[in-house]
Design a protein around this nucleic acid. Structure first.
Length: 788
RNA sequence: GGGCAGUUAGCUCAGCUGGUUAGAGCGUCUGCUUGACGUGCAGAAGGUCAUAGGUCCGAGUCCUAUACUGCCCACCA
């Protein structure tokens, strides 16, 4: 507290104190009986498997929290739960890596146990970080994505989608990760630039020969056609004929397509089942033969002949060697191109044929665009990001994963006719490998044996349910309905295409409503050089050390540095500035404490005798309240901070306080009381506006100076400042002249090496001011005995 | 190749719907130990606002190209 004897602001102790106070008093608990308007937040559940917490995590959660604290002070009943994502592939891979486990050698149930143990640890780490950072969530309202509640909700979602006809199972070409050995979705893909050998291979046709170029000669046994452009004069005579594939000797037709680019390669496109999206497109439209070559293990099957059982890369090497021997390989050159890889492991993705569950999303672009428009995006450009993704959709959403750890599909198959039997809603959550199906006999064939579905739901199939999952945490039924659609969805830009999009999809199918009203999209925290923070680069300071070294307020201050959607470099200078700001607030608090004698502060009562300086700072304050409020309303905490800083430092601290010191040090009376009134009220408003950004220091000062007046438990439960109403004809421009005059004398003193504290005997002003009005003020504020 | 964003002082960035001498913080230099604050205060230096055109009485701000940077999407012939 601003004890005049305690000169330094000890942030560690003070932040610890208020953190405990907030927890003990349950300050941020959701009140389901409140009549205030509701503001619900669907916070991204972080992957608990992240064991390296850094400024990036701090930045994105702090930015959303600025808005939440602001809304709370604006009188909203805030519903702010926290989730932890301990579901799915990332967790599995984390555990595999950490314990160096081979899943084929460990029991499924044992593996899951380890996953659960690890994720609990992770959740604790996060909770500690969020508490230390002052993230004001209601810790009684938490969920984990593997919990019974989350499982129940996501299983319900699957069943509902099936009933409504948007979920289907189909054998079709799918994206497959040979490393993780699971199906994946389009959204799981990432680009990676690689160097490959472009191989020019000779195909035989009777007595003639054709050359095609490919980077994937191992797919030769799966070759089903060659395509040329119909306008390509070089190959006119080939069209309609059959050519023979080297080594494998199978004959394939030569077809035409205007999409074939004559300049690419040799102008001939080899279509296999399936090398890439183009192959797949041709296979679909022209109903080409199916020669599925690759197995789920990423090896060639028997179609590969003597290469059967080889991994893709090995087969490629050997086939190239054999092509060389048989003189079918005529040229090789290195090229750089990019591949689709699985974002979780970096393995190039393959297309294989498999039976999977899909949710219908392709072909509904118009619908998804409409939803994009219904939602407010902050910043607004982010809607384009969403549109771009929707526009690139090619596949339905594959939601089944051939993994261990995740939400089970709530279904069984008839052992005889394979009819799927879904769980009943009242039995949820279910685990089909342990639980029994709800029927004794198959309704289709009457058979009485069933097999459980062992696939699990992909991560996003669960996460996309959070908007209607969190309402289950709210309690009363009436409140639940008000929570959805949620008010705010904060997230980083890279999960627009997954979390945001899939939530929209599900919300549309289940409820015909958007899942959230507002999205605020944050950028990334980066290192000093603007690089992504990563464990590999080792370019970060762990978050607990950061908080320990600088304090939460200072780091939160840094986090205000980037506008929404912008990346922000880690910058210790900005953190220092944050610490300076807390120190300054602390010192102003001390100054007020020292100068509170003879003053009986009563809120709302404007005393007589306000002077020019008082009117001026009140006018400036009112303007600042307006600007800061407007900025927060549009989620622009960066602008709010800039406005606040400018007012607090350059107007209030640098000038107003200097202008009234002589009155405070003078005799008790109207002038002194008026300056105290102004000082206290303006500072209270400043504290309140800083409170969402710097919750600890503002709480400290509030508790000491203002709690007894406002009688509110905490600044964070107090109301947002309102303009101070005063009647004044003060001309701000005119007053500014008086400030210019003070500046002029300051400059003079500095240039003469005179201390600002010592009194000048006489000074003749160049700045033209209204001396009659401001002479006394200027003389006293800058200490000049005689002013001309 | 397509899209989006950016390019303003040595560094990190503000500059809303175009309007007098372009701003802040940090850094640098100079001075001041003022009765809240040396984790401070005051002052100074420092920019042809990426480049080239254009619209306009007037452009950092609008338009068109170009270059570079970052991100997203497509690209395995």
């Amino acid at each position: 507290m601003p004890n005049p004897f305690d000169k330094k602001y000890k942030f560690q102790q003070i932040e610890e104190k208020w953190k405990k106070f907030w927890e003990r008093e349950k300050l941020f608990s959701f009140n389901s009986n409140s009549r205030k308007p509701l503001f619900s937040v669907d916070t991204p559940p972080p992957y608990v498997s992240a064991d390296h917490l850094h400024v990036g995590h701090i930045m994105s959660y702090a930015q959303a929290e600025f808005i939440v604290r602001y809304k709370r002070m604006r009188g909203f009943n805030v519903f702010y739960p926290m989730g932890f994502d301990d579901n799915g592939l990332p967790t599995e891979r984390f555990v595999e890596k950490k314990y160096k486990l081979d899943k084929s050698k460990i029991k499924r149930s044992d593996f899951i146990k380890i996953c659960l143990k690890e994720t609990q640890k992770g959740a604790q780490n996060y909770k500690k970080l969020w508490c230390n950072l002052g993230i004001s969530v209601d810790w009684n309202k938490t969920y984990s994505t593997i919990s019974p509640l989350a499982t129940k909700v996501s299983q319900w979602s699957i069943i509902d989608l099936y009933k409504k006809g948007f979920l289907y199972r189909k054998k079709s070409p799918i994206l497959w990760c040979p490393f993780c050995k699971t199906a994946i979705a389009q959204a799981d893909l990432e680009d990676k630039t690689v160097k490959s050998k472009m191989n020019y291979i000779r195909f035989k046709i009777k007595d003639k020969k054709v050359t095609i170029a490919t980077t994937r000669p191992e797919l030769l046994p799966a070759c089903v056609a060659l395509y040329v452009n119909p306008k390509d004069k070089r190959y006119l005579d080939l069209v309609g004929k059959k050519v023979q594939v080297p080594l494998f000797k199978n004959w394939v037709p030569v077809k035409t397509s205007p999409e074939v680019v004559m300049e690419k390669g040799t102008g001939i496109m080899m279509v296999c089942t399936w090398g890439d999206q183009e192959d797949l497109a041709k296979w679909k439209t022209d109903k080409l033969e199916t020669k599925a070559l690759l197995g789920k293990d990423g090896r060639l099957n028997k179609l590969g002949g003597k290469y059967q059982g080889l991994k893709i890369e090995t087969a490629r090497r050997e086939i190239i060697a054999d092509l060389k021997k048989s003189k079918a390989l005529i040229k090789q050159e290195e090229i750089e191109h990019s591949l689709n890889v699985h974002e979780r492991c970096g393995t190039p993705v393959e297309l294989i044929q498999s039976k999977q569950w899909f949710i219908k999303i392709a072909g509904l672009k118009k619908k998804w665009f409409e939803y994009g428009k219904k939602i407010n995006w902050y910043p607004a450009e982010m809607e384009k990001n969403y549109r771009l993704w929707v526009d690139s959709l090619k596949w339905d959403w594959c939601v089944s994963r051939q993994r261990y750890y995740g939400t089970p599909f709530p279904l069984w198959y008839c052992a005889k006719c394979k009819t799927p039997i879904f769980a009943r809603e009242k039995d949820l959550p279910v685990n089909p490998t342990e639980d029994k199906p709800p029927l004794k006999k198959c309704p289709h064939c009457g058979h009485d044996k069933f097999e459980p579905e062992t696939d699990v739901l992909e991560t996003w199939a669960t996460s996309s349910c959070t908007p209607f999952l969190i309402k289950e945490l709210a309690g009363k039924k009436e409140i639940k309905e008000k929570i959805f659609p949620v008010s705010l969805r904060p997230n980083a830009f890279e999960i627009i295409r997954t979390w945001d999009f899939y939530s929209i999809v599900k919300s549309h199918y289940h409820f015909g409503k958007p899942p959230f009203k507002n999205v605020m999209v944050s950028g990334h925290g980066q290192d000093e050089q603007g690089r992504k923070i990563s464990k590999r680069l080792n370019n970060y300071v762990p978050s607990d050390r950061l908080l320990n070294d600088w304090g939460a307020d200072a780091i939160r201050y840094w986090a205000t540095g980037a506008s929404l959607g912008q990346n922000l470099r880690f910058n210790s200078k900005e953190i220092k500035k944050g610490r300076r700001t807390t120190t300054k607030l602390w010192n102003v608090g001390r100054f007020l404490a020292i100068n509170s004698e003879d003053y009986n502060f009563k809120a709302g009562k404007t005393p007589q005798g306000l002077e020019h300086a008082d009117f001026w700072i009140i006018k400036e304050l009112n303007l600042t309240i307006e600007k800061v409020t407007e900025a927060f309303e549009s989620y622009d905490y960066a602008k709010a901070k800039n406005e606040l800083d400018a007012f607090f430092w350059s107007k209030f601290a640098d000038y107003y306080i200097e202008l009234v010191k002589y009155r405070l040090n003078g005799k008790a009376g109207r002038s002194k009381t008026a300056s105290q009134f102004t000082l206290f009220n303006v500072f209270l408003a400043i504290l309140k506006m800083y409170a969402p950004l710097l919750p600890f220091i503002t709480e400290e000062i509030y508790q000491d100076l203002f709690k007894k007046i406002e009688r509110v438990k905490s600044i964070h439960l107090s109301s947002w400042p309102e303009k101070i109403k005063v009647k004044s004809a003060l001309n701000t421009k005119d007053f500014q002249k008086a400030i210019d005059a003070i500046d002029e004398i300051r400059k003079y003193k500095t240039s003469q090496g005179i201390s600002l504290g010592s009194e000048l005997a006489e000074y003749s002003l160049k700045t033209k001011i209204n001396l009659a009005k401001y002479k006394k003020l200027v003389k006293n504020a800058i200490k000049v005995k005689k002013l001309l």
